[in-house]
Amino acid sequence: MALTFLFYLSSGLFLGWSLGASEASNFGTAVATKMLKFRTAAIISSVCVILGAVIEGSGATKTLDSLGDITSLAGAFMIALSAALTTAWMVKLSIPVSTSQAIVGAIIGWNFFAGRTTDLTILSEIISAWFLGPIFGGIFAILLYYLLKITFTHWKLHILRKDSLTRIALILAGAFGMYALGANNIANVMGVFVPSAPLHQLKLPLGIVLSHEQVLFLLGGIAISVGICTYSHKVIETIGNTIMKLSPLMAWVVVLAHGIVLYIFSSTELRDLLISWHLPTLPLVPVSATQAIIGSVIGLGLAKGGRGLNWSVIGKIVISFVITPITSALVCYISLFFLQNVFQQVVY
């Protein structure tokens, strides 16, 4: 049973690994500009992503699970695999893909195959979050940029002290970004396995008890960490030197802005707080870290005089909103057909 479960879980772990390898670019600029060693960045990232996944991963997962109640392990396996394959394909086509869009597409594909209806209210909530992710990223980046500008206009700081503070700020923002990534994106990696995973509570020292869902998130978090430690180096260097060729201070703005975006779409505590203050809330939905970063970079460009508005990138993001879920749904539907009829597996 354990081996069968691990086999089925492997597609989710693979998705987690690729997420860690490709989307964990929080420390990109800090590492590329040699302000931080890769090893240090990888350790902080790994710890924070696991903490985020275990502590706050359930919010976005619930939303994803209510889109499709996947009670079969084989079905969950194929959904995660289809999402992983679609993501890899989109990356090859240089489209800023989101694992969230791929997994949602795959779940819809499963719904079609299983003859279940897709809850359109939840789907529209999820799609609106995809649009809001980059837009909020841009807005937060603009706000943080002006906050920094005002701060440093009044606070005459020596260039060297500013450098030391920037390092600390980059580490904190990077750690927060990774925590938020874990909290938000673990739903993509492990969300579909939650209803069917045969796991039990795990008792840890110091009286810490992890629910079966949290044990699953811990495994997913470890998979993301392995992705960070084994493969993200190249991606970090590329992002640090090309897409995000920003000064360390501007990188801080982008990393923090994208971290806030991921956090507000994942934190149940924040949502409860907003409810208690009678303020409007946001759906807890997995959003794309890469697209939030792109939104932040564009926002920063606008704040600095509008030179950063790259329509081709914006176009690619919108295209990926359409292409990724459709492709993923198709891949999932066809694969489920084979899994059910050729390999004789119960997929729903």
Binding site: L36, K37, T40, H158, L160, R161, R167, I171
Partner: peptide, 20 residues
């Protein structure tokens, strides 16, 4: 592990003084 030591801040201070 972390390359942000207190010595870095004292070094920064010393360097600031040198620049002055």
């Amino acid at each position: 592990m972390f390359h942000i030591h207190l010595s870095l801040f004292s070094k920064t201070k010393a360097l600031e003084a040198d620049i002055d």
